[in-house]
């Protein structure tokens, strides 16, 4: 069945048993992102220590794709330097915008390669990107604020890719 290319076992596993879920202290920034077309929402916190993504925690409502993607994303970015994590985000974004034409690099993207099939479904790409955009936004807020004391995005702030969609 064609559906299996989207709902890979890895995705369903992360969906059933999400990693790093639940909001945790301490954190430097918290954001709330929504996908206005389908009602998916995520609240996400990041903790940055020195130049490293020390923790990412989240809570949200959403489909299996968005939930699994959040789980995979936290696995990938926690413990990485901000620079490396941002590079991963770019790599994942490129994969999701590829409409299935890019062969993902498992050494780099690990479990996230399972989302290659999702990139063929334009309506679902946003689901896979929701938590990544939230993470990027939260991290940028910490990096941009001189007093890295946190701060929340306004309720219902919309990630960049949403605005273009």
């Amino acid at each position: 069945m064609k559906l299996d290319s989207m709902y890979q076992e890895i995705i369903l596993d992360h969906y059933r048993n999400p990693h790093h879920r639940g909001l945790r202290e301490p954190f430097d920034a918290e954001v709330h992102h929504v996908n206005p077309t389908c009602g998916d929402e995520v609240t996400l916190r990041v903790k940055i220590v020195d130049d490293t993504v020390a923790d990412v925690s989240y809570e949200g409502e959403g489909c299996s794709i968005s939930q699994a993607s959040a789980s995979v994303m936290t696995d990938l970015v926690i413990g990485k330097s901000i620079g490396d994590a941002m590079a991963l985000e770019r790599e994942f974004l490129a994969l999701m915008q590829s409409r299935g034409t890019v062969e993902p690099d498992e050494d780099v993207l690990e479990d996230a390669i399972a989302f290659a099939g999702v990139s063929k479904y334009p309506a679902r790409v946003k689901c896979a990107l929701l938590s990544w955009m939230a993470w990027k936004d939260a991290t940028a807020q910490v990096v941009d604020s001189p007093a890295a004391g946190g701060g929340a995005a306004p309720e219902g702030s919309v990630p960049e890719q949403e605005k273009q969609a």
Partner: peptide, 9 residues
């Protein structure tokens, strides 16, 4: 089961 997943299947 999230509506998005229902709709997809």
């Amino acid at each position: 089961i999230h509506p998005h997943d229902v709709g997809q299947v």
